[in-house]
Design a protein around this nucleic acid. Structure first.
Length: 560
RNA sequence: UGAGGCGUCGUCUAAUGGCAGGACAUCGGCCUUUGGAGCCGAUUAUCUAGGUUCGAAUCCUAGCGCCUCAGCCA
């Protein structure tokens, strides 16, 4: 543990203070409270790492609680995905899995307490009227004509609301606080509404459902949560959080602390926007590898370790911020670099005929899985034959100054194999390059020339006859601009997905779904867990390797 | 412009009255059978103006800018 005083975030410092002051008897209990109305995204991962992380560091516990008070928007599918994602991220809630809907009866009892104290009343104003009575940011609101009715009357009405005597929307239960409060949340907020919608867990047991501000604080209290960590937009709700617990006479008062939510460049992070992308078919689903969802990142090939390390790196603060996507990408490269085996794969094939290689002859060449780490065992055989594929980009008919790959008359090294020289270019009638005629130097197996001549470029290749044909999906950023605007659909990146028919080295035929590799000189790839079939993997590009050649090429192009 | 928050390199984030540090990004160099990785180096920041102090990112005053709140969403 590197829990030095330096670098600790303000939440942990606050908890230190509480513990030192014996505020909660030395206990720490947090909770991650998702609403099951969408899939988790990396912003939730930040919250999960914080809540579970804090609990672990202080020897406490972290509950997983579904905040399921709005059945119209929630479903079991979302619950299942959330459970899977939290687990995949590496966190364990033990037996502490809860649902706010399990507390409906208790919450109802708290509501009756509030009514009996004269702190809540049944209002018969319409939604529009309530809005009109609320006032504005600069003017106080007006009190409802039903505000001062006797508690007994409200109690009777509230019981009849529960019993189903009234139509949806005809009445609500409201807190009786202060219609002139400068904090609009305190202007008699709605606590319960009538809504005849089947709940995914309680079915048709209830036709009234509690609101967030009433449910969340009391659920925290029921569970004896010590520190209720949430995002900045709930700061204005904190007085109400405290008010409800006090006046409903709950016997446990957690401390709500707010921190800034995560934003990332080149993506969007609100469930509403992500849902729109899914609904409009702009992506294939919540787990589309371009989505910033946990399931999308998983399918893309991200590891839980990389996501956790990222969440640690970005820190916790109250300042609104937008983190560079590059930091996330750096994290997954850094993780995968030392973890995954190397393979050769030609994404945009160009055929090469090696004229001095006898037809029908095949050589098996051993290639290490981890060339940077000789101590680490693991290798596979790659067949070498007369016809091979190389990357189209690795040949240039009229090479620029700094291009040191293959060109007419030039020599390059085939990774792990021989030096190869381009003798001729074969074009079709349209002038397109169809194939290259080359020669190899049989004295150079392993890539070194006995005469000591230097060859600068090394390129990857696969044997044409042995190659595995595979679909490879090249994913790029979902959005073309760093900060998508309100009309975010217009900012979508038109080429965020390119589907390629690639040629892979034979070993890759046995790639298990979900397995990760580095395709040398290209990037990190992950066998798609949904579309791969035995012997026919489909690969998703997780992230490209850093490409300093791209910068040089761009500069050369500019200056020419 | 009522209330509540927030302002430190391009981007995140530390420094809690005592040398403004780290990471990512960027730019150089070394090395390299991945134009990858690795190694070395460099550029770049305290919102503004006053004040307190030997000394201010930090304390005080006044500004400026940004975010959140007028759901029977969470």
């Amino acid at each position: 543990m590197d829990e030095t005083r330096e670098g600790r975030d303000f939440i942990r410092e606050r908890i230190d203070t509480d513990l030192a002051g014996d505020k909660y008897g030395g206990r720490v209990a947090t909770r991650f409270p998702p609403e099951p109305n969408g899939y988790l995204h990396i912003g939730h991962a930040k919250s999960i790492c914080l809540n579970f992380g804090v609990a672990a560091e202080y020897g406490g516990i972290c509950h997983l609680r579904f905040d399921d008070t709005n059945p119209a928007k929630e479903s079991q599918e979302y619950i299942d995905s959330i459970l899977e994602d939290v687990r995949w991220l590496g966190f364990d809630w033990g037996e502490h899995l809860y649902y706010a809907s399990d507390y409906f009866e208790k919450l109802y009892a708290f509501a009756e307490v509030l009514i009996q104290q004269g702190k809540a009343y049944v209002d018969e104003l319409t939604a529009d009227e309530i809005r009109a009575y609320r006032g504005t940011l600069t003017e106080p609101g007006r009190e409802s004509p039903f505000r001062d009715r006797p508690p007994e009357e409200s109690l009777d009405l509230f019981r009849r609301m529960r019993a189903g005597e009234f139509e949806d929307g005809s009445r609500v239960l409201r807190a009786r606080i202060d219609m002139a409060s400068p904090n609009l949340n305190m202007r008699d907020p709605t606590l319960y509404r009538i809504r005849r919608v089947s709940h995914h867990r309680t079915g048709d047991d209830w036709c009234i459902y509690p609101m967030y501000d009433f449910t969340h604080c009391l659920s925290d209290s029921i569970e004896r949560i010590t520190h209720s960590l949430c995002t900045l937009e709930f700061e204005n709700n904190r007085p109400l959080y405290d008010w409800v617990i006090q006046h409903a006479r709950a016997d446990w008062q957690p401390q709500q602390i707010e921190f800034a939510r995560l934003n990332l460049t080149y993506t969007v992070m609100s469930k509403r926007k992500l849902q729109k992308l899914v609904q409009e078919g702009r992506v294939s689903g919540w787990d589309d590898p371009r989505m910033p969802t946990v399931s999308g990142l998983r399918r893309r090939g991200y590891t839980p370790e990389a996501i956790r390390a990222f969440c640690e790196r970005i820190g916790i603060a109250k300042k609104e911020s937008t983190v560079d996507m590059e930091l996330l990408e750096h994290g997954i490269r850094d993780d995968l670099n030392t973890r995954v085996a190397r393979r050769l794969a030609v994404l945009r094939p160009l055929k090469v005929v090696i004229e001095n290689m006898p037809e029908g002859r095949v050589e098996e060449i051993a290639a290490p899985d981890f060339p940077d780490d000789p101590a680490r065992m693991g290798q596979r055989a790659i067949p070498f034959a007369r016809e091979i594929y190389i990357e189209r980009d690795d040949f240039m008919e009229e090479p620029t100054r700094k291009f040191f790959r293959l060109a007419p008359g030039r020599e390059v090294r085939l990774r792990w194999a021989y030096l190869l020289k381009c003798e001729a270019v074969v074009k079709d009638d349209a002038g397109e390059i169809r194939e290259l005629r080359c020669s190899y130097d049989p004295q150079t197996l392993g890539g070194q020339a006995p005469d000591g001549r230097k060859v600068r470029g090394t390129i990857h290749w696969v044997s044409a006859a042995h190659a595995v044909d595979a679909e490879v999906r090249i994913y790029d950023r979902l959005f073309a601009v760093p900060r998508p605007g309100d009309d975010f659909i217009a900012d979508l990146h038109p080429d965020s997905l390119q589907v390629l028919q690639a040629k892979l080295e034979p070993d890759l035929a046995k790639a298990e779904p979900g397995s990760r590799y580095q395709f040398e000189r290209q990037g990190y790839f992950c066998a798609d867990s949904r579309d791969s079939e035995p012997g026919r993997p489909v690969f998703n590009r997780t992230v490209p390797l850093r490409d300093s050649w791209a910068k040089i090429a761009a500069r050369e192009k500019k200056s020419s």
